[in-house]
Design a protein around this nucleic acid. Structure first.
Lengths: 337, 337
DNA sequence: CTGAAAGCGCTTACAG
DNA sequence: CTGAAAGCGCTTACAG
């Protein structure tokens, strides 16, 4: 019977402690930890496992990755954590990482460019094996220092220009285009594209372009309206000036869609009879709101899973392929338009 | 003019590279990195900074924390990532960590106990300075191995029994009690507590108890109903058997509240005239749904910030105080009851 | 103001 | 089947 170390409460137990407990070298313990069982006497193996259990030993990954030069850590910089989209995206990423033995380090850039920069630097310092970024800036130059660092990067949700990194995004252009086709079918004559200041402008541009690709070769009008915060005055102006059959508002994002509906209600404008409404819907509540929302629904969970697989591929295969993956969105038809 | 290292693209640059570039020892570079400027010649300082910029050097935190025995890493195990609550909680945590120079490692236990165990072990292996846990199991024994590891732990959202760890939770009992008082004022005679299987049962117990603390000394009846998934048959049964004035349903969580509203609509049961509805509301859409939802609204962002400060305190002060912090919720009154 | 050397907790090529 | 030793990228007590 070997005497039990009392020190386990005082300080973290290391591989040396385990080796001493068993009375062998740490080389052998390390081999055991790394599953090289065929190189170790079966009795030694048992003794090692006993010591590990008795001491409550957990290998120090930091030391391990210092030696191995891989951390099994992936960094994520998300543009706005306080967002339903973010939580589903992360959930999807985690699903994949868990199975593959990778851990996630998260930073929230909170839509502030310097916080994003800080986050990326923290992540580099943390020695991540790869980086997932929902970029705040459209120009790739902003992230040039990442390529110098030679760390695999996958962009998610948004692509930068020029396209020098792989990305996983929603099919913004196509989904919007498909929605516009439906609006055309429904005989709407005017589409009001409702945008808000500060929302990732170049994604919204894609959505606008998707709609424009249909309206431009039909008899539908397309009007661009931008509102700030909860001030819908610009929209009111457009609506006031409007004549003819009910126009349809296409809200560029879910929050805006909801706020718009709320504002219309407050103005006692009936949906969809006076004004129809559609757009991007993040709420997952489209059914509960009256009237039910017709809109484009993204799939952030699948986006997350795909992104996770993509970064893992780039890490493991060391592939330099700059693949642009688009995840299709769904169009749900309900009563709002 | 010193010749420029070409290797920066091939391999990560280390403190030794910087030292060599300048032609000094890494001791001095390290001192510079750690801000001990008064110990270094000003010209040397400039030379070091130049080399750092030229080489794109980022210090390796893993090596640093191996030596220093502190990682500035905090682990978070969240019960269900795909949840609005989670994203706001994390957002709050990040707000604090960013300012304090800590990084967040996140795992999603996805309501699966063995995934939670796995996550905790990964986090220990990652050498986190502290652990934030939204526990899946009520019994503290489940997490006993953490105290042996001597790592600071703060529980969030839920407390375990016996209370051996500090925690930051919502005021579940009190908020529910206050809501019950309002229901009493509004002259409701029957409260139906609507619960769903699998939702953190001991938090819901607190909510139930809060309501019971009022109903038990009034003439209000309190009925407990549990539904599974989207099957509201048990609720239908209770409603069918009901006589007298409209009862009020108290939904134990936001998802349930929304589903319940949806189901009532499908059954053409009018809210609040036939049946009134209230409960915990996570949706932040209480205003948009018709009728507006009267309910208890939590503040996960503040919960997150408080939790982050708490774990940081425990790490820095090495305090062993098992403080139980309760964050007050708000009650919003609208039309649903 | 500066540096050589030891050591943090691991892994592995080399040797036996 | 096992171990001594070197080294991953840092920091710091000690010495000058």
């Amino acid at each position: 019977m070997i005497e039990i170390e009392k020190s386990s409460l005082m300080t973290k137990v290391t591989i040396t402690d385990v080796a001493n407990e068993v009375g062998i070298s740490k080389t052998t313990v390390s081999r055991y930890l790394n599953g090289q069982y065929n190189r170790i006497n079966i009795n030694t193996q048992h003794a090692i496992q006993e010591a590990i259990d008795a001491l409550g030993y957990v290998p120090n990954q930091q030391a391990r990755s210092l030696k191995l030069k891989e951390s099994h850590l992936i960094g994520l910089v998300i543009a706005d954590m306080a967002n339903t989209y973010s939580s589903h995206l992360i959930s999807g990423i985690q699903n994949v990482f868990r199975q593959q033995g990778y851990s996630l380090m998260i930073f929230d850039s909170a839509n502030i460019v310097e916080q994003e920069k800080h986050a990326l630097n923290q992540l580099l310092a943390a020695n991540v094996d790869g980086l997932i970024l929902q970029p705040l800036v459209k120009n790739s130059d902003q992230y040039q220092f990442l390529s110098e660092r030679n760390v695999p990067v996958v962009l998610v949700d948004r692509q930068t220009e020029p396209q020098i990194w792989p990305s996983v995004t929603s099919d913004n252009f196509n989904a919007s285009k498909n929605m516009a086709k439906i609006l055309l079918d429904k005989q709407y004559k005017q589409v009001i594209f409702l945008d808000s200041h500060g929302e990732n402008p170049w994604t919204n541009q894609l959505r606008y372009d998707g709609i424009a690709s249909i309206t431009s070769r039909s008899d539908m009008d397309l009007t661009y309206v931008q509102v700030e915060m909860a001030d819908f005055t610009p929209l009111a102006a457009v609506l006031d000036a409007h004549h003819g059959p009910a126009p349809v508002i296409f809200a560029a994002n879910g929050e805006l869609l909801l706020k718009c509906l709320s504002w219309l209600k407050s103005q006692q404008i009936a949906v969809p009879t006076d004004v129809a409404v559609t757009g991007y819907d993040d709420s997952t509540l489209g059914d509960l709101i009256t009237p039910g929302i017709t809109g484009v629904v993204q799939n952030p969970q699948v986006l997350g899973e795909t992104t996770a697989n993509s970064i893992l591929n780039h890490i493991k295969q060391k592939s330099k392929i700059v693949d642009q993956i688009e995840i299709p969105s769904q169009i749900i038809e309900r009563a709002s338009c």
